[in-house]
Design a protein around this nucleic acid. Structure first.
Lengths: 160, 160
DNA sequence: GTTTGACTTAAACCTGAGTTCAAGTCGTAT
DNA sequence: ATACGACTTGAACTCAGGTTTAAGTCAAAC
């Protein structure tokens, strides 16, 4: 029913300093204290901690998380505002995922570049003849190969 | 054929201070200088800048990016090492994307929580009767609804 | 009854990733 | 020939997100 800061830290996979830091930054206004001033977390607090953790992992800055938590404590009048905030955050996160996918695509092109180079024993196979510079057509060459392949990993994974 | 730091900054969507900072941190050992000591970027340098940008957006710390760039300048002897590094980074990034997806799933559960609360006019519909605490079964209730829905967005998007 | 271990605070410190500043150097246009 | 704009440097500064330290409180175990 009640949990010390140490127990909560362990359950959340963090440490006590971080939780105290969050408290100082206004993220934990809901935690009770015992007579000695020690933080006394309750089961329901984990719902807040879950939200904090999610927003943190989504890249939301500490003070914005604090604003959201405080909306939560203001009762039913802020329900729409809380919904709208999460809706906006969903969009931000979807864009981030798309961006990550784009970086993955580029990383895979570079893996192909190095896979083929390793197989050839030299990077010069991708250079414009007579120069030390990568041929501008290299990326298109990869895209063409990619179109023919059944799956990306066959194309980019060195299996030695 | 040649580009000043300002032109490169504009092309890369950044600014000159950041590029100089990267140079100081060893990310741009490949840039030439003119007689006055001004940086003189060439077309081939954009291949490096693209890699730097990708790794940066993937969350790789500056100094690790520097290590990779330096491998690139050491010639064909480091091809396998470069491949292995990108392979490892691909894995890291795939895990990050998965993590983001998990946060998106949680965010959508919370959107549903608030959508239904807004529709009911109160959050108490999700509380254990007689308490101010969220019912532990709420998330499972959402998962059940989700299984029946054709698509998530019908379930979580308030359309007023 | 004192030691131990987990807690409390404020304040100082740390790291990463830039940003800003001061003082100076060029090449070109007027 | 001088003013302008874009460049150069090193050093100081900022900001977020913690982490560490010092000094103290408290309950339970021995």
């Amino acid at each position: 029913m009640n949990y010390s800061i140490g127990e909560v830290a362990e359950k959340m996979g963090t440490n006590t300093s971080t939780l105290r830091y969050y408290d100082k930054k206004g993220l934990l206004p809901f935690v009770d204290r015992d007579t000695a001033g020690r933080r006394k977390f309750k089961d329901n607090d984990f719902n807040f901690l879950e939200v904090i953790d999610c927003l943190k992992k989504s890249g939301v800055p500490i003070k914005d998380i604090g604003k959201f938590i405080n909306l939560c404590l203001q009762g039913d009048g802020t329900l729409q505002e809380r919904y709208d905030y999460l809706d906006k955050e969903e969009n931000v996160l979807e864009k981030k995922v798309q961006e990550m996918q784009d970086q993955l695509d580029f990383l895979r092109f570079k893996k192909w570049y190095y896979k083929t180079s390793v197989e050839a024993g030299t990077e010069t196979i991708h250079f414009t003849p007579g120069t030390n510079f990568v041929d501008p057509g290299t990326h298109n060459q990869y895209r063409a190969k990619l179109k023919q392949a059944k799956n990306v990993h066959d194309l980019i994974n060195l299996k030695n």
